[in-house]
Amino acid sequence: MTKSDRLAETFARLNAEERGALATFITAGDPDLPTSAKLLQRLPGAGADIIELGMPFSDPMADGPAIQAANLRALKQGASLAKTLEMVSTFRTEDEVTPIILMGYFNPIYQYGVSRFVNDATQAGVDGLILVDLPVEEDAELCDPARTGGLHWIRLVTPTTDEKRLSTVLRNSSGFVYHVSIAGITGTRSGAAGSIDDAVTRLRRHTSLPIAVGFGIKTSEQVAAITKTADAAVVGSAIINVIEANLDDQGQAEPALLDNVCTLVTALAQGARN
């Protein structure tokens, strides 16, 4: 796929280390563009193995209150798809290893222009895409051109994805498979440990791709439990909550914001390193 497949290399390396991956989600431009860029730069050092970078959208339908607020903060500070790609380019001048997955909704990409986006994202050093509102039924929109352009297309598999649909959903996917642990929005509840194990076991029968589990994962203990069976645990809203807690009354980042987020990420990373 990509010239150097950072995702495959990351999973191979962690496999050799016999541990799972911590994938962290932040929204590009939250709480403001400079702080967000610095945070992105510090995440790998704090323990993030894979970075999911949210592309801000005014109407994030699959997200809970924490990530909704992050989207609005970012947009208010002038975030845009072009600036998200710039952030990735800047990040890549110092980090050639950590995979970056862009996650979000289709409309900003549609307005940017699909082929222009695929080209610019590849140039910037993006490794893969997760598009919440592009199910397999709409693959012609972005999945097909993105894969042709060398980007991984990562699918969400959910508790409502039945056996028959699963094989369809797994087709044309690469990089890893993202198991959504609950039927619901981000940052609310998490799936019961037993049902996550069952789901991962079921997925393994259908795919040889690495499996990440997300939605509702907040603690190092949960990360540890999930990475026992899955290849990666994704944490988003819990990180966003720390960002939100470190804003002053005017919504400006307080000086300790970056350190406090990194402290959480390091603690979460311990869970993946057990």
Binding site: A62, F106, P135, V136, E137, V157
Partner: peptide, 20 residues
Amino acid sequence: AHGHFGIFGGRFVAETLMPL
């Protein structure tokens, strides 16, 4: 059959909702 009126319409929803 896919819910398209020309280029319009479609089913741009999360995978969780797609089976529904």
